[in-house]
């Protein structure tokens, strides 16, 4: 399955909806979107990965790159993910300590609201 990307803003939070496979072939499109959003002043990103079928280290690199960029503007990049097969790669690489990972968009929005 190819990669489908969409995004919308709610208050100060930009929610990025990702569907499909994030790998060495498709990850550049996600990278371009994240860079574009940051360049347009969106510094608080929430990436919804609930419909992601596959994620490899190239995809992780794109997310890490996005996190670096938003942090340069005191922003945040957090994730929504409950799929064990996706979470496993975050655990193996120790990135669960780096990203805020939530069980739902609502849970992330609630946490984001508390931090404002």
């Amino acid at each position: 399955m190819d990669l489908k990307l969409d995004h919308h803003s709610e208050d100060r939070l930009t929610i990025v909806e990702v569907e499909g496979e994030i790998d060495v072939y498709t990850a550049p499109r996600l990278r371009e979107l994240l860079i574009d959003l940051v360049n347009k002043g969106n510094f608080h990103l929430l990436v919804n990965m609930e419909k992601v079928d596959f994620l490899d280290s190239t995809g992780l690199g794109v997310l890490v790159g996005g996190l670096k960029r938003v942090r340069a503007h005191d922003g945040s990049l957090e994730l929504v993910c409950t799929q064990e097969r996706i979470l496993k790669i975050f655990r193996i690489t120790g990135l669960t300590k780096v990203f805020g990972i939530y069980a739902s968009v609502d849970e992330a929005k609630e946490a984001h609201g508390r931090d404002k």
Partner: peptide, 23 residues
């Protein structure tokens, strides 16, 4: 990898990939 943000480039993740394979 204890400091992914400090050590990793955005693109070539070769060493990272091997760590994932090992896991």
């Amino acid at each position: 990898i204890d400091d992914p943000l400090g050590q990793l480039p955005d693109t070539l993740m070769s060493g990272f990939g091997i760590a994932v394979i090992a896991g």
